[in-house]
Nucleic acid binder design. Structure first.
Length: 470
RNA sequence: GGCGGCGUAGCCAAGUGGAAAGGCAAGGGACUGCAAAUCCCUGAUUCAGCGGUUCGAAUCCGCUCGCCGCCUCCA
């Protein structure tokens, strides 16, 4: 499988370092507020990558995602609201996990909190000072950017160029304006931890270096996040990690493109955003996932109502076929198809191959979804002509779609079918209605359909008889 | 100023050297008691523009135009 590596600016063949377990780290949220819909993009995209690794590559995945529960924004928020940083962090951490659940994201293997790992961060800073890569001034500690030879290699920047562009807040304490904060002295009333440099807190996402090493080792496979993190965040992580260990940090750096709104980057500071939980309430998780995965993860993507609506229709086209088929064949005792059915199933093989080819090419979920849509079209055609045992091939076609849908987190539900007594009762009504229809009692039969619809049960009269879905 | 990306049918969007995927929208037809679902047909002689390389370019190179991101917290 090939993945585009920001570090080399090329698509490279990916294999886990130890050839069976992928160790990946995905930058997590700062829990000072709800996520907006753009924040959800990496969550969905890298979950899809993880699922693909597990289901189609046969690799185990150690998936680590931090929760940043101490930072300037949390402190600001606490000051504004009169609550404690811990209270705010807890509220939005809960909201975050709730969101993951609603989106059907596989839980990370580890979700460590920054505040649970302060000691490790202090160790890291001490080590950097020992190696003369960092220096303390008046209770603050800064990273000495010019002392790390590889500085700028991820974002393709040169220190000289950065200086000329300088929009950086200069500080008289810093040796160089580009030096960044590793430890920040606490002001009165701020949360603080004791350290060799006095009371304070870690700076600049030192946590990512510490947490990734704690769970994944000094050199791990994949570090992922939004492309707005390439510089300075990820560049600074490399400086810390590789400066401290002398070993390569992440082997592959993956970055998703930004969500835009009428062409401009969606962001809280611009105010052009929609909360993720609200969008989810309006469109549902399947639509949101389909929307993201029907666009390539590295490209910018414009958030528009029409785009979500198109995604809703396109995904329900697949889901409807699955549900209808499941309903038709639910009660069928046999699942052994005949030669005609076998031929049909063989005809789907090229689409499966195309799906894998697409996914293997830098997670081209767009091409993968195209293959899925082709399978749906072919299956619908087959449904229109097949009779008898040939139709049992539909079970395998549905199973194929579910298999291909798994990495995308789509089409997994069992078609909302009810079991047991409800199913028997509905079938009883369907039988009665069928009798009425043969007697051309359409007013009454339509009434049954109407009343069931009011209860959320959809009847569809097909050539194979009446089917029902929820 | 430095670094990087994008421009493909009405809209969204893959494809990055060898016959322009897929979805949404629109129009026509089929199926059908009605409804739902579905199927078929109709679309880019062309991939922002202009030059170049090549037997062959949406795909490579150069220039031009337009849009966007990072360089400050940011997914």
């Amino acid at each position: 499988m090939k993945l585009y590596n920001t570090l080399t600016r090329k698509k490279e063949t990916f294999q886990p370092q130890d050839s069976k377990t992928v160790r990946m780290y995905v930058c997590g949220p700062t829990v000072y507020n709800h996520l907006h819909i753009g924040n959800v993009r990496p969550v969905i995209v890298f979950d899809a990558l993880r699922r693909y690794f597990e289901r189609f590559k046969g690799w185990d995945v150690l998936y680590v995602q931090n929760i940043t529960d101490i930072d300037d924004k949390l402190i600001d928020r606490a000051a504004e609201t009169g609550r404690t940083v811990a209270e705010i962090a807890e509220e939005y951490t809960d909201a975050y996990f709730d969101l993951l659940k609603k989106l059907a994201i596989k839980e990370p293997t580890e979700s460590p909190r920054a505040t649970g790992n302060i000691a490790g961060m202090i160790e890291l800073v001490k080590r950097l000072i020992e190696k003369r890569l960092a220096y303390e001034v008046d209770g603050d500690v800064y990273y000495r950017v010019t002392a790390f030879a590889g500085y700028g290699k991820l974002s393709n920047r040169r220190i000289e160029d950065l200086k000329t562009g300088a929009r950086i807040a200069t500080s008289e304490k810093k040796e160089n304006p580009l030096d960044f904060t590793l430890w920040k002295r606490a002001k009165p009333g701020e949360p603080k931890w004791g350290s060799p440099w006095g009371e304070g807190r870690p700076g600049w996402h030192t946590e990512c270096v510490v947490l990734s090493r704690k769970y994944l080792g000094e050199t791990f496979d994949i570090h992922a996040g939004g492309n707005d993190l390439v510089f300075p965040h990820h560049e600074n992580e490399i400086a810390q990690a590789e400066g401290a260990t002398g070993k390569p940090f992440a082997r592959f750096w993956l970055h998703n493109g930004m969500l835009t709104f009428t062409g401009e980057k969606m962001s809280k500071s611009l105010g052009n955003f929609a909360y993720a939980h609200e969008v989810l309430q309006q469109f549902g998780p399947e639509t949101v996932r389909y929307f993201y995965l029907s666009h390539h993860y590295r490209k910018p993507l414009d958030y528009a109502q029409e785009g979500l609506e198109a995604a809703a229709k396109a995904s329900s086209r697949v889901q409807t076929m699955i549900d209808d088929t499941a309903s038709e064949l639910a009660a069928h005792p046999s699942d052994k198809t005949d030669e005609t059915g076998q031929e049909f199933l063989s005809s789907l093989e090229p689409y499966r191959a195309r799906y894998i080819e697409a996914m293997d090419d830098d997670l081209n979920t767009v091409g993968a979804i195209a293959a899925i849509q082709e399978i749906v079209a072919a299956t619908n055609r087959f449904k229109g002509t097949a009779t008898g045992d040939a139709r049992l091939a539909l079970k395998d076609a549905v199973a194929l779609l579910r298999d291909l849908g798994y990495p995308l987190g789509l089409f997994q539900e069992k078609g909302h079918l009810l079991k047991g007594i409800e199913d028997d009762l509905i079938r009883l009504l369907i039988d009665l209605r069928a009798k009425l229809r043969t007697q051309k009692e359409f007013t009454l039969s339509d009434q049954i359909r109407e009343r069931l619809l009011e209860l959320g049960i959809i009847l569809k009269d097909t050539a194979q008889g009446t089917i029902w879905t929820v």
